[in-house]
Each structure stands twice: as structure tokens, then as C-alpha cells.
Design a protein around this nucleic acid. Sequence first.
DNA 1: GTGAAAGCGCTAACAA
DNA 2: TTGTTAGCGCTTTCAC
Lengths: 340, 340
Amino acid sequence: MKFEAATIKDIAIALGLSTSTVSRALRDSHEISSATKQLVLEYATRINYHPNPIALSLKEKRSRSIGVIVAEIANSFFSQAINGIESVAKDTGYNVIISQTHESYEREVMTLQYLASRSVDGLLISVSSSTQNMDHLKALHDRGFPIVFFDRIVEDIKTHKVMVDNFRGAYDATLHLINKGYKHIAVLAGPETLSISRERVAGYMEALAQTRVKPGKALIKYSRYSGLQLEEVEQAVSQLLKLRPRPDAIFTASDKLTTNCMRVLKSKGIRIPQDIALVGFSNSDLIELLHPPLTVVRQPAFEMGELATSLLLQLIESKRPVKEFERKILATNLIVQAST
Amino acid sequence: MKFEAATIKDIAIALGLSTSTVSRALRDSHEISSATKQLVLEYATRINYHPNPIALSLKEKRSRSIGVIVAEIANSFFSQAINGIESVAKDTGYNVIISQTHESYEREVMTLQYLASRSVDGLLISVSSSTQNMDHLKALHDRGFPIVFFDRIVEDIKTHKVMVDNFRGAYDATLHLINKGYKHIAVLAGPETLSISRERVAGYMEALAQTRVKPGKALIKYSRYSGLQLEEVEQAVSQLLKLRPRPDAIFTASDKLTTNCMRVLKSKGIRIPQDIALVGFSNSDLIELLHPPLTVVRQPAFEMGELATSLLLQLIESKRPVKEFERKILATNLIVQAST
DNA sequence: GTGAAAGCGCTAACAA
DNA sequence: TTGTTAGCGCTTTCAC
């Protein structure tokens, strides 16, 4: 059953006016007599008239909505970022359309295609873990479509970017482990194709460079879906546990990797931190309720969402092509608890 | 900078054809010569033509998108339900527009207003905790707008509803506490205005009715924002702790209430379950990593999302007004762990 | 102060 | 096989 709402035409016919008069009256134009205005306004309220946003979009060639593409809304980092995005969007009268890729490249391409075909005026994206080819994004960007990257950015597309200091966050976490006396520190990261994975591993390496111990290649594990699949984490952890000397600490470089690594360690009966210490990127609000409470690297997700959105709106509303792009780098926050 | 995409007209002019020919060629109509088709298709691909969904929506008077209104996407129950919703929507070519109320009635009304003014073809909603007046929903429903309720339903609006057996879920949880030997069992519920709160409290009462112990009024605490605000949980728990005899178990009737109650108990240095046992509704995937692992009532959130969506699509695509409505009640699942 | 007409991008009934 | 025209709901010149 299609739902039919009232239109300007309905009002015009009922009141014996023209659609243009009604339109002007509704927008409170000065060239309409107050008598007519009142008449129209009253009737409009009575029949519960609301302008059709689709017709408006078609006319104005803009939808006043922005698209957001993230891996998973069930990920605390992303849901917090989305809250930041929504808060700015709401204030400026924009609507937010959220899509999830579930770390799938195909989904990312499909969603992008749909959103970009003018149902949104611009796009905020944190690319999926399995995205290696960036052509879909490049093509869109080349055609002048406003895009802002946040969190998982694409380095070689020239536009605004919002991220944290991944290198530093990883460096701090690893240094913390070193200072606590851990000697054999492994790292679980997302795919090497993502810049955040590379940066976080680089931060880890740099911290280790300060010690005598050189990190063997075997201590570095990349996982294709950033830990979304429990199996990949299970496999990586099992391999780490076979190493001699066995790692006495693990640094996990993203939200899902952290919680799933903890899950795997527990299921194997490995005690944290007595057997293996654990520190990781996570924005979960449950970390202090975990056993043990986790030491985490926290990102200012809400602020990142806010910032990325204001930059996107600048892009959308700018009259002339933007040539200068911002690269905002926020600080992470190491919260030390009992897991290290 | 507005982003200008190619239109059918562009193609028509470039190729010296009429827009209708181009339109038909693109849709692979049988009445177009294959030569023309190929010409058009090639050119369209070359200039990266994509149909404008807004123009289509205006023409077809449908947007092929559905709206979802929930309290918080950062809530595991809702994010799982949304995954269910998206899976069905994607399969049927619908887009999903998600909005959060953050448990605010005002936000709910605003969002509803926007979505309903024809930017979506139908709506899935789990009403906000602070919603008491249902007029905004009733008005919309009366005008024939397709709505399906899930989780937090509105009893006196006649449409499809998808929920769990709240009574039974609460009954099972409470009975479990009784069987474990707990004598003074308190309950933390959402606002009494929500049917799920009333049903869950009723289930709790029924289980207690089986024992000699009558639950005092003081053991039942309602909270306006369903535990979203830590303060309300803090206050309720503090009041419970002052009771004599002091409760030895708490049943929490929703996701946020459960985790925030645990947070409050921990911050007060109260051990679970030695001092007070805790069981609650929760769909968090971290419960087994908590300290202690929580005994929870789990809802089939994904299935609820799927089911609600198929019912909504039925409503949207039905040719005639639907008179018979489904009331789907799914089973909950009690997962017993160390907190009880 | 009000109305007629054109146009946003697209499809479809009707002509040719 | 292709073109012309009208119309989806709205705003905005341009007339009157």
C-alpha cells in the first residue's frame, strides 16, 4: 500500500489558488497577502502537509544528506564516531545515511556506487579492511564528489583526512610494555594494505628499536579482516604461541583484534597478564569490566566524527573547487589497567 | 562545490537521440535496435552515467528505502538487529536509513517527521524510553504510513509487531536466581511506560510468586532512560543497597541497565556474585570476557531485525490496505555463567 | 498580489 | 525503431 501524502497542488485546488501562490505562502514570501498566507498555512497544518524532500532534492540538486561508510556499527569506535557525525549533521540540517561494509570490498564498492549517484551530497568513509584497490574511490573523487576520509584513510587521494597519531599510539603502548619489563612483544595488526596497520606496526617497531631486542618477523601478524573473523585471530595467536621464546606480551592494533585476541587467549586457558600481557586499541566502554580490565589505546572517536563532518560540509558547501586539504591528526590516550 | 553527474539528456544530446530512446536503451527495452543500444551503453559507461535515484523516487513515488529508529546503535542489541534489517533490505534492493533517538522523545518526533515525509517508504521502530505520548506514531499510522514495531512496541497501534517473550525471559532469569538460592531479588527495569518493562517486571513477579517471599515494592526500580544514564542506575542501586534485608541478587531488564549496574556494583566494591548476584538482558558479545562472566538473557536480535523487515516490506508492497497484523514473539535464551 | 510556465531527471503513453 | 509529450512535487522567473 503506497502512502500518499498531501501536496501543494492539493492545497491549491482546495483553496482555489495556484500552486505558485501556495508555494510562496508556505515559504512566507513578502509578495503574498497576509490573508492568503494565513489561509494557506491553516489549511496546510490541518491536512498535515509536509514538503516532499525528494522533489526538493531534485530541484535543488542536493539531498542535504551525507553518507557514512564504516566496517561495522557494532564496533564501539565506529558507533562513537557516528555519534559525532550525527551531532554535527543534525546541527546543520543534514541527514546521515549509514552503511556497513562488514570489511568486504564488494560491499564497499556497491554501497559507494549507490550513495554517490546523488542520493548523498558527500561521503565520510573509513575503508574496509579487505579493500586493496582504490579505483572506486579515486574515480568518484576525480569526478569532484566530496569525500572525507577518517580513521582508515587512503593516502594517495587528495582530500581532507581525519585520523589519530597511529604511530604514536602504538609506540606508547609498546613502550609501556617494555617499561613493564616484557621482553618478547608480538603485534596483531589489520591488513598491511591499510595505512593504519602500517603506521601502528611502525610505532611498535620504533619502540622496540629502543631496546636491545630486535623484533623477529614472526612476531608481527597481519590479519585480513582486522580481527572481525575470530578464526583469523585464533590462527595468528596459535602461531605466536608456538614461537620460542614464547611472546610474553601482545599489542593488538584495532578494536576487534583486541577483544577477539582476549577471547582466544582465555579459551586457551592463558592468563592475562601472568602468562601473556595484552594491550590494544579499543574504544569499548566495557574494558574496565573485563577480566582483567584491559590496558587500551583509546581514540577520540566522537571528535573524529565531528571534525570529519565539518570538513565534509565545508567541501560540500564551498562555491569553488577546494585545493588545500587538511590532514588532522588527533592524539590517542593510553589507559593503563590490569592487563599489562 | 556541487557535484554534477551525467544525465540521460547529456547522452541524448551527445548522440543525437531523444531522451526516451536513451532511457529505453539503458533499460534494455526490446523496442530499441541493438545498434542504438550498444551506442548508448558504451557512451554511458564512458562518461560514467548512473541514473539519478532522486528523479526515480519522484517519479515512482517511492524511495526504495526504509527508516530505522532505535535508541542507540552503540547498544549491542540494536546493532545486531540492524544487521538483520540490512541483510533483508539488501536482498530486496532497499536502502536503510538509521536514526538514533538517544532515548529522547523530542528526537524521536523530529526524526519521525523527517523520515515520514516521504524520504522512506516505511519505518521500523523501537520507541525511545522517554516516549510516553504516542500521538506522533498514531497520526502517521492513521495516514496509512507503513510502520512495524520491534522490541519496544506500542500495544495500541494496530500493525505488525516483532518482539521476544519478555515475560518468559524475565521469568526464567528470576527463577534461575530462586533456584540458585537467592532470597531477596531486586529488579531494575526501564520506564513503566514501555510495554517491555512492564512485561519483564511481570515475569519477575510471577517467578517470585512461586516462592513464599513476596517482593516488596521497594525491590522494583524503574528508570526513565533504560539505564543509558549512569546516574539513574547509580541512584537505583544505592537505594536498593539501603534496604534491609539487603537484596542478594539483581535482575536487570535491559542491555544498558545490565552493564551499567555491573559498573556501579564494581565501583562500590561489591563482589558479584558473592555479595550480590547479577543476571540481566544483554546482547553484548563481551559478556564471557567480563569479570565475572555474566549470566544473561539473550534476544535473537538479528532474527528480530530480519523478521520485522520482511513484515515491513510486505506492508509496503501490498496492493491493498492490510487488515490482519502479525504479532511475532520469539524466544529468549538464558545463558548461565558465573555471575549468579 | 497572483498565476502561468518552465525545468530539475526520469519514464511511459501515445504518435509517427 | 524512434520521437514527442506529459507528469512526478516543487520553486522561480516572467507576465498580468
